[in-house]
Write a protein that binds this DNA or RNA. Structure first.
Lengths: 205, 205
DNA sequence: CTTTGATTTAAACAAGTGTTTAAAATAAAA
DNA sequence: TTTTATTTTAAACACTTGTTTAAATCAAAG
């Protein structure tokens, strides 16, 4: 039924799966080839080396992780809605890609030049985002509590992403299965919004 | 000046350093031996294998990460002070051990039996902690907002630990050096407390 | 000093690693 | 079909891995 993928695409997908599960050092080209269902030599035929293949996979994962957040940060929404949207979209995205934050944060230091390059490229998108401007403006008008906009941004993200990074531990301790954990995270969205709104906005709308 | 450590202790410390930096797969016994300044064969003379050495290091890291939190959870403090203490002590501890959460959370699945065993052993300490009892009681008396005590616990921890796990990314984007980041995290403590108190406690004291 | 046991060493082992090679199979072009 | 280029394969390469061995060094006891 599914249309046959090109060999190149099969390798890339297998590489993403194995790298995400085992990390760079723990992954082997042989396992990637096995998952992809192709001969070992083809990984080096299509991509030049394990390093190059990893850089490709990591780069895409890195972009994926920040794309949605940055897009919402710079959207036209008013601040209150924007914070809600940040939480909603981040949760929805991570439900589909639960291992992404762990992968990006733990594997970044390996290919240093690349990693730091990607980060500095993203700097402006965060520091000069419309979100930061909105927060500063609202603070000047006394509508919003006076906290560092970047700290606020991180607080929003931390309340979402941590629940995915800690999932193996939490789901085990609380004995939640996949569906229950999903429900738990979805319900947590509202709590985070309530908490942030109440703390942040000085004048109730 | 420093008293000479035993060979066994030198290996264990070197192993902790290398395992934390590179992970299990990325670490080699030769690098551990080099860091410890001893012959390769000694790692297997004192510990039986790389696996056994890793299990030892991981087990201690695991205990370290939860010891303080569990101790505060079950202390005699009133709820409000307890939440403050959780945040204070977690930050202080992580300032001394910044790589611990990342290590415990990402390397746990490797030695599965051990990991899950340690988790189930900790289950009661969390689920039946004095903290949970206090929250439920305060909720019954209408003093505290009606949220899942475990979710509250996780929210507290997430607002602290995430700032350490994301440190490589955040410090690079914001161009903060070590001292600045330390100041940033210390200041963040108060913000987390304010936010949680305001959200959680229905009657101002 | 001699002897016994523990500790340390250099060297090697087998297995697994990323990568390459040269031939085979397939597809495309003539 | 014949020729050419592309893709795939099995096998091997050089190297690193965790681990072991047997000898050397050291410390303590007799």
């Amino acid at each position: 039924m599914t249309t046959e993928l090109s060999t190149e695409e099969k390798i890339k997908r297998a590489a993403r799966q194995v790298f995400m599960e085992k990390g760079y050092a723990g992954a082997t080209t042989r396992e990637i080839a096995e998952v992809a269902g192709i001969n070992i030599a083809l990984t080096n035929y299509y991509f030049r080396s394990k390093d190059k293949l990893f850089d490709l996979v990591y780069g895409e994962a890195f972009q994926d992780l920040f794309r949605i957040i940055i897009s919402v940060l710079n959207s036209e929404l008013p601040l209150r809605d924007k914070i809600g949207q940040l939480i909603d979209e981040d949760v929805d995205f991570l439900l589909k890609n639960p291992d992404l934050p762990k992968f990006v944060m733990t594997q970044g230091y390996l290919n240093n030049e690349n990693f730091f390059g990607m980060l500095t490229a993203k700097r402006d998108a965060f520091l000069n985002s419309k979100f930061v401007v909105q927060v500063v403006q609202a603070q000047a008008q006394g509508q919003v509590r006076n906290i560092n906009p970047i700290e606020l941004m991180l607080t929003i993200v931390s309340n979402v992403q941590f629940f995915f990074m800690a999932k193996p531990i939490v789901s085990r301790i609380t004995q939640m299965d996949e569906a229950q954990y999903r429900h738990f995270v979805l319900q947590h969205k509202q709590m985070v919004k309530d908490m942030l709104y109440q703390y942040l906005f000085l004048q109730p709308e």
